[in-house]
Protein backbone atom coordinates (compact mmCIF):
# COMPACT_ATOMS: atom_id res chain seq x y z
CA UNK A 1 0.00 0.00 0.00
CA UNK A 2 1.16 3.50 -0.80
CA UNK A 3 2.06 5.37 2.38
CA UNK A 4 2.99 8.69 0.80
CA UNK A 5 0.74 11.33 -0.71
CA UNK A 6 2.82 13.15 -3.31
CA UNK A 7 1.94 16.55 -4.70
CA UNK A 8 3.59 18.65 -7.42
CA UNK A 9 2.83 22.34 -7.95
CA UNK A 10 4.39 23.41 -11.23
CA UNK A 11 4.43 26.56 -13.33
CA UNK A 12 6.68 29.56 -13.80
CA UNK A 13 8.68 31.57 -11.29
CA UNK A 14 6.68 34.36 -9.65
CA UNK A 15 3.30 32.57 -9.55
CA UNK A 16 3.58 31.90 -5.84
CA UNK A 17 3.85 28.11 -6.07
CA UNK A 18 6.46 27.87 -3.35
CA UNK A 19 4.23 29.86 -1.00
CA UNK A 20 1.22 27.59 -1.48
CA UNK A 21 3.53 24.57 -1.17
CA UNK A 22 4.64 25.92 2.17
CA UNK A 23 1.03 26.49 3.20
CA UNK A 24 0.09 22.90 2.31
CA UNK A 25 3.14 21.42 4.06
CA UNK A 26 2.68 23.51 7.18
CA UNK A 27 -1.03 22.66 7.36
CA UNK A 28 -0.24 18.93 7.23
CA UNK A 29 2.72 19.06 9.62
CA UNK A 30 1.52 21.51 12.26
CA UNK A 31 -2.27 21.21 12.20
CA UNK A 32 -2.85 17.59 11.25
CA UNK A 33 0.01 15.81 13.01
CA UNK A 34 1.40 14.33 9.81
CA UNK A 35 4.93 14.22 8.53
CA UNK A 36 5.41 16.57 5.61
CA UNK A 37 8.37 17.67 3.53
CA UNK A 38 8.21 20.52 1.06
CA UNK A 39 10.96 20.99 -1.52
CA UNK A 40 11.39 23.33 -4.43
CA UNK A 41 13.21 23.65 -7.68
CA UNK A 42 13.74 26.80 -9.66
CA UNK A 43 16.12 28.51 -12.02
CA UNK A 44 18.33 31.55 -11.58
CA UNK A 45 15.64 34.08 -12.61
CA UNK A 46 13.30 35.34 -9.89
CA UNK A 47 10.42 35.61 -12.36
CA UNK A 48 9.77 33.38 -15.36
CA UNK A 49 11.36 30.04 -16.08
CA UNK A 50 10.20 26.65 -14.88
CA UNK A 51 9.50 26.50 -11.17
CA UNK A 52 8.01 23.81 -9.01
CA UNK A 53 7.24 23.06 -5.44
CA UNK A 54 6.71 19.54 -4.11
CA UNK A 55 5.08 18.22 -0.97
CA UNK A 56 5.22 14.69 0.42
CA UNK A 57 2.75 13.89 3.21
CA UNK A 58 2.74 10.69 5.24
CA UNK A 59 1.78 9.20 8.57
CA UNK A 60 5.20 7.56 8.54
CA UNK A 61 8.58 9.24 8.50
CA UNK A 62 9.36 10.78 5.11
CA UNK A 63 12.90 9.66 4.30
CA UNK A 64 13.21 10.58 0.63
CA UNK A 65 12.09 14.20 0.40
CA UNK A 66 11.07 14.54 -3.25
CA UNK A 67 8.11 13.25 -5.24
CA UNK A 68 8.51 9.85 -6.92
CA UNK A 69 5.05 9.23 -8.44
CA UNK A 70 2.73 12.22 -8.05
CA UNK A 71 -0.85 11.67 -6.89
CA UNK A 72 -1.72 15.26 -7.66
CA UNK A 73 -0.15 17.74 -10.07
CA UNK A 74 -1.12 21.37 -10.39
CA UNK A 75 0.03 22.81 -13.72
CA UNK A 76 -0.06 26.56 -14.22
CA UNK A 77 1.92 26.72 -17.45
CA UNK A 78 1.91 24.86 -20.75
CA UNK A 79 5.43 23.59 -20.14
CA UNK A 80 4.56 22.08 -16.77
CA UNK A 81 1.32 20.60 -18.14
CA UNK A 82 3.19 18.93 -20.98
CA UNK A 83 5.88 17.72 -18.62
CA UNK A 84 3.42 15.68 -16.55
CA UNK A 85 0.38 14.93 -18.69
CA UNK A 86 1.61 11.65 -20.14
CA UNK A 87 3.72 10.60 -17.16
CA UNK A 88 1.24 10.47 -14.29
CA UNK A 89 -0.52 7.32 -13.08
CA UNK A 90 -4.07 6.57 -14.25
CA UNK A 91 -5.63 7.49 -10.88
CA UNK A 92 -3.53 10.63 -10.45
CA UNK A 93 -5.03 14.07 -10.89
CA UNK A 94 -3.67 16.74 -13.19
CA UNK A 95 -5.30 20.06 -12.33
CA UNK A 96 -4.60 22.78 -14.87
CA UNK A 97 -5.51 26.31 -15.84
CA UNK A 98 -7.93 25.94 -18.77
CA UNK A 99 -7.58 29.65 -19.65
CA UNK A 100 -3.93 29.41 -20.61
CA UNK A 101 -3.17 25.75 -21.28
CA UNK A 102 -3.92 23.79 -24.46
CA UNK A 103 -5.19 20.35 -23.55
CA UNK A 104 -3.44 17.23 -24.75
CA UNK A 105 -3.81 13.54 -24.07
CA UNK A 106 -3.36 12.74 -20.40
CA UNK A 107 -2.40 9.40 -18.80
CA UNK A 108 -4.29 10.30 -15.63
CA UNK A 109 -7.35 12.35 -14.78
CA UNK A 110 -7.08 15.89 -16.18
CA UNK A 111 -9.28 18.55 -14.61
CA UNK A 112 -9.27 22.04 -16.09
CA UNK A 113 -10.52 25.17 -14.31
CA UNK A 114 -10.56 28.79 -15.52
CA UNK A 115 -8.03 29.93 -12.92
CA UNK A 116 -6.54 32.94 -14.71
CA UNK A 117 -9.86 34.58 -15.63
CA UNK A 118 -11.24 33.99 -12.13
CA UNK A 119 -8.15 35.64 -10.61
CA UNK A 120 -8.34 38.63 -12.96
CA UNK A 121 -12.09 39.09 -12.39
CA UNK A 122 -11.71 38.91 -8.63
CA UNK A 123 -8.60 41.09 -8.31
CA UNK A 124 -5.52 40.39 -10.40
CA UNK A 125 -3.10 37.64 -11.43
CA UNK A 126 -1.26 37.75 -8.12
CA UNK A 127 -3.99 35.69 -6.44
CA UNK A 128 -3.78 32.92 -9.04
CA UNK A 129 -2.02 30.67 -6.54
CA UNK A 130 -4.69 31.06 -3.85
CA UNK A 131 -7.51 30.24 -6.26
CA UNK A 132 -5.60 27.12 -7.27
CA UNK A 133 -5.08 26.24 -3.60
CA UNK A 134 -8.83 26.47 -3.00
CA UNK A 135 -9.49 24.11 -5.92
CA UNK A 136 -6.98 21.60 -4.57
CA UNK A 137 -8.52 21.83 -1.09
CA UNK A 138 -11.96 20.95 -2.44
CA UNK A 139 -10.58 18.07 -4.54
CA UNK A 140 -8.62 16.81 -1.52
CA UNK A 141 -11.85 16.53 0.43
CA UNK A 142 -13.56 14.41 -2.22
CA UNK A 143 -10.89 12.27 -3.89
CA UNK A 144 -9.70 9.18 -2.00
CA UNK A 145 -6.24 9.03 -3.61
CA UNK A 146 -5.35 12.36 -2.02
CA UNK A 147 -7.21 11.90 1.26
CA UNK A 148 -4.13 13.09 3.18
CA UNK A 149 -4.33 16.50 1.52
CA UNK A 150 -4.90 18.96 4.41
CA UNK A 151 -8.46 19.96 5.27
CA UNK A 152 -10.06 23.28 4.46
CA UNK A 153 -9.70 24.42 8.08
CA UNK A 154 -6.02 23.49 8.39
CA UNK A 155 -5.23 25.19 5.08
CA UNK A 156 -7.08 28.30 6.14
CA UNK A 157 -5.12 28.51 9.40
CA UNK A 158 -1.85 27.93 7.56
CA UNK A 159 -2.76 30.51 4.91
CA UNK A 160 -3.51 33.09 7.60
CA UNK A 161 -0.11 32.72 9.22
CA UNK A 162 1.76 32.74 5.93
CA UNK A 163 0.34 35.85 4.29
CA UNK A 164 0.95 39.50 5.19
CA UNK A 165 -1.85 41.14 7.19
CA UNK A 166 -2.85 43.69 4.56
CA UNK A 167 -3.51 41.01 1.92
CA UNK A 168 -4.95 38.33 4.21
CA UNK A 169 -8.61 38.94 3.40
CA UNK A 170 -7.96 39.11 -0.32
CA UNK A 171 -6.03 35.84 -0.19
CA UNK A 172 -8.77 34.19 1.86
CA UNK A 173 -11.40 35.39 -0.57
CA UNK A 174 -9.44 33.92 -3.47
CA UNK A 175 -9.00 30.65 -1.59
CA UNK A 176 -12.78 30.48 -0.92
CA UNK A 177 -13.56 31.26 -4.55
CA UNK A 178 -11.33 28.43 -5.71
CA UNK A 179 -12.91 26.07 -3.20
CA UNK A 180 -16.34 26.79 -4.66
CA UNK A 181 -15.22 26.33 -8.26
CA UNK A 182 -15.15 22.54 -7.97
Amino acid sequence: MKTRTEIVLAGVGGQGLILIGKIVGEAAALFEGKNAVQTQSYGVASRGGFSKSEIVISNEEVAYPEVLEPDLVLALSQQSYDMYRSKIGKDSLLVYDSDTIRQGECSGIALGYPITSTAVNLHNLKILNMIALGILARLGASRSNIADFPSYNSLKKSLEQNTPAQYRNLNLEAFERGFKMV
Binding site: K22, G25, E26, A29, L30, N35, A36, V37, Q38, T39, Q40, V62, P65
Partner: peptide, 8 residues
Protein backbone atom coordinates in the same frame (compact mmCIF):
# COMPACT_ATOMS: atom_id res chain seq x y z
CA UNK B 1 18.26 20.21 -0.88
CA UNK B 2 18.53 20.20 2.91
CA UNK B 3 18.94 23.99 2.99
CA UNK B 4 15.75 24.69 1.07
CA UNK B 5 13.52 21.84 2.22
CA UNK B 6 10.83 22.55 4.76
CA UNK B 7 9.98 20.18 7.60
CA UNK B 8 8.70 20.22 11.10
Amino acid sequence: IVGHMREK
